[in-house]
């Protein structure tokens, strides 16, 4: 089956999670000898990684209107690209952006969609995939029976591996309808140079145990040494100690990094739901009975104000 992969960019870079989507799509295509095409807008500095991860062709959109990230325009463009390549599957990384593209694309391209997918399909004929549901508390196996299929995959669902392909880059000028670009962007506020929480390999998160925003240096120093993104519990963002977009959990961002470090976080079920698919969880909490230790791989019972600076220093010495 021929596969089209949408590569999302941030800070002019193809996102890591999009490379995972590419590897996922390549794996399916290679089973049956289908083609692997990637679509990207703009000119990301790591464009060559598309080829090294297995895209034999990259369709590059240069139309500057696409820099607005209009989901309708992207949905129409992806549908057109998939038709050109006779693809029967479109794969993308799950993200705030792709969440809005998927339903539009599903309707325009007449395809069934499964979001939040964490496994490869059984086979092309039996396209049964596992989705994460109940906000990380369970999975469901479900089969996509439509002729055309769309899958958005959860971060860290597949291991990224190289499989260099020819990788020609071709210009792609999609023809978009009058519905595209009908929503006017007045302004954009985006942190640049920061590691995206949802895309991060390591996340350092702080809770109410840190007592106040003035103590956040503990979290950010540790994060800096590890090259990690920073997160927080819901009360912390409710109290405006940290920005809303850092709030992790059932009603916030769901993360699945390789390493999640929870500092002064009690481990309420709503918080744990958002981190449960992390590979390794480290908990630092002064209360040995805190439920976070039930979810953690490694735990330290101790005062964060004492333990975290020591940990940061130990890492600085050894990395």
């Amino acid at each position: 089956m021929s596969v089209l992969i949408f590569l999302e960019t941030t800070d002019n870079q193809i996102k890591k999670s999009s490379l995972e989507a590419l590897v996922y799509g390549r794996t399916i295509a290679s089973r049956s000898g289908g083609s692997v095409t990637a679509v990207v807008a703009g000119n990301p500095s790591n464009l060559s990684e598309a080829a090294s991860h297995g895209a034999s062709s990259v369709m590059q959109i240069s139309d500057s209107r696409f820099s607005q990230n209009d989901t309708q325009a992207f949905a129409e463009a992806l549908s057109e690209a998939a038709n050109q390549k006779s693809a029967s599957l479109i794969v993308m990384a799950k993200s705030v952006f792709s969440d809005s593209i998927v339903p539009k694309l599903s309707s325009i391209w007449k395809a069934g969609a499964a979001t939040n997918v964490v496994s490869l399909p059984e086979s092309d004929a039996n396209f049964s995939v596992k989705r994460s549901i109940f906000t990380g508390k369970a999975f469901e196996a479900m089969k996509l029976t439509s002729e055309r299929k769309i899958v958005s995959i959860k971060k860290n669902a597949v291991a990224v591996s190289l499989a260099p392909a020819a990788g020609e880059v071709v210009a792609f000028q999609p023809s978009v309808s009058s519905k595209a670009f009908s929503i006017r962007t007045v302004s954009t506020e985006k942190a640049t140079g920061e590691i995206l929480l949802s895309d991060a390999e390591i996340v350092v998160s702080g809770g109410r145990g840190l007592k106040g925003p003035e103590n956040w240096g503990l979290v950010t120093d540790l994060a800096k040494v590890l090259g990690a993104a920073t997160g927080c519990s819901k009360p912390v963002s409710d109290l405006h100690w940290r920005p809303h977009h850092e709030h992790v959990g059932q009603t916030g961002i769901k993360v699945s990094p390789n390493l999640y470090i929870a500092i002064g976080i009690s481990g309420a079920i709503q918080h744990v739901a958002g981190i449960s698919s992390s590979k390794v969880i480290v908990a630092i909490n002064k209360d040995p009975e805190a439920p976070i230790f039930k979810a953690a791989t490694y735990g330290i019972v101790g005062d964060a104000f004492d333990v975290v600076p020591k940990l940061t220093q130990a890492l600085r010495n050894s990395l």
Binding site: N69, S95, T185, V186, K190, E194, L196, L197, H245
Partner: peptide, 8 residues
């Protein structure tokens, strides 16, 4: 939007 917000 990822890492920020947009006014529309």
């Amino acid at each position: 939007i990822e890492g920020g917000k947009e006014t529309l």
